[in-house]
Write a protein that binds this DNA or RNA. Sequence first.
DNA 1: GCGACAGCTTGACGACGGTCAATGATTTAG
DNA 2: CTAAATCATTGACCGTCGTCAAGCTGTCGC
Lengths: 251, 251
Amino acid sequence: MFATSVASPALPEALWPVPASTLRWDSQEHLFHEGDPVSAIFTIESGAVVIYRTARDGCRQIHGIRFQGELVGIGYNVTYGVSAVAVRPTSARAVSRATLDRLLDNDPTLARQMMRALTSELRRTSNLLMVIGSRTAIGRVAACLIDFSNRAADSDDTFVLPLSRGEMGDLLGLTIETVSRAMTRLKVLGIIALRRTDTVTIRKRATLLALAEEDGDGAARGRLCACSEARCTRYPPNEMTTTENRRPPVH
Amino acid sequence: MFATSVASPALPEALWPVPASTLRWDSQEHLFHEGDPVSAIFTIESGAVVIYRTARDGCRQIHGIRFQGELVGIGYNVTYGVSAVAVRPTSARAVSRATLDRLLDNDPTLARQMMRALTSELRRTSNLLMVIGSRTAIGRVAACLIDFSNRAADSDDTFVLPLSRGEMGDLLGLTIETVSRAMTRLKVLGIIALRRTDTVTIRKRATLLALAEEDGDGAARGRLCACSEARCTRYPPNEMTTTENRRPPVH
DNA sequence: GCGACAGCTTGACGACGGTCAATGATTTAG
DNA sequence: CTAAATCATTGACCGTCGTCAAGCTGTCGC
């Protein structure tokens, strides 16, 4: 859900031949905190990093998770706009802000790559916003699973969840319990299989996709309770002819 | 809520002395649609533009509104990642993508400005995500009003709503009715005053701010029903000592 | 093996907000 | 001024999901 084919990929390592040092973090260690002065930007070599922000009242909103080959901390600002924490042992190459700034002066190509990377970051946040803004719990979880499965390097339909239930909740704007119930429901419906609570096998990808996109194609409708005919009708889907995202607002 | 002091401002017009033509749109006319090839980026001279995306099922998620001096369409990609529609008669200067690309080759400063603008765009989307991900209806509406009041050029506490109830709903992930109820509640509580349904006066800014940030400082709590003591406890606020956004995740 | 602990699951309950429907307010056309 | 259209408001109803509180499962140390 959060990565898309439209968005540009992260900078390939081959195109990133700049002075960099490799750093390591244990699980739960922070790469940086929101508000810290920007010291460097990072390319993950191995592991996984969660990007998040914390509201005043302590609510945490995870913005996404980044894996090998992806960039972390690329906001071009004085301070980091998000926090970044490793969720498993992680190594990453750090390019200092000073180095980056120096290179940017002489390399328009690098600037373009940074712009593309920022655009990609924006796209992912936008995608998450779409999911949280209009999907119900099971739709959000479905979208999350689809995303993980697309990004996992494992065999196509089985992968290990990189996030705990609580972290998935913080990502999707749900509670632990609601995430758990959604997972259980997906399991009971035979859409996924679970082993050890963190190993997922997608059994009915089409159905899962439908849930993630709330296509409402009869079958198991998006609701956790699966008993309502209602769907998101903030804008009724009376113009679903266009295959691509192209739909003027009702006025 | 969506603009922040942390984020960099849009490019000042003075720093944008590039070949540009001024275009005009009536209310409800599109500047561009998501998926269109990027032809230009725009600096609004007057009017207001809504940025949005439409989900497959027809749900519209407004990402934000842009006013005079702000940029629209700055994603650095082949196609636009969002749609943009004028919500009142609007004029904007268009810098073609070709021109931009030519200038980027020779002007590292411009590249930096673009990166800052993209970072600002990212920040706004992130802020909206924070609001939608964890605030209840009245908190979302409160945050929206605070944002409008901060950005309005009018007298400090009175401003004209640039969005209809329905558009506010599409922005905040709520229905028209819920937005309306929240506005009414804010009015009944004496926190705002309404004239002609689109002219708002903020009477108790501190309270409105508290609602927007769910500080839960006694007084009128965030709920529409105002009878529950419960608050967002996805991550209990047991560490609210830090004044700024700095809070390690619970592990 | 056992106990302790963390994370996950499941149930009960109720509030929030979506849905449907009717009414009211404002604007525009004639 | 009246009619029509659009938008906003208000009410009734109920599904979803947050909350609270058990119980369950798997892991770790010993």
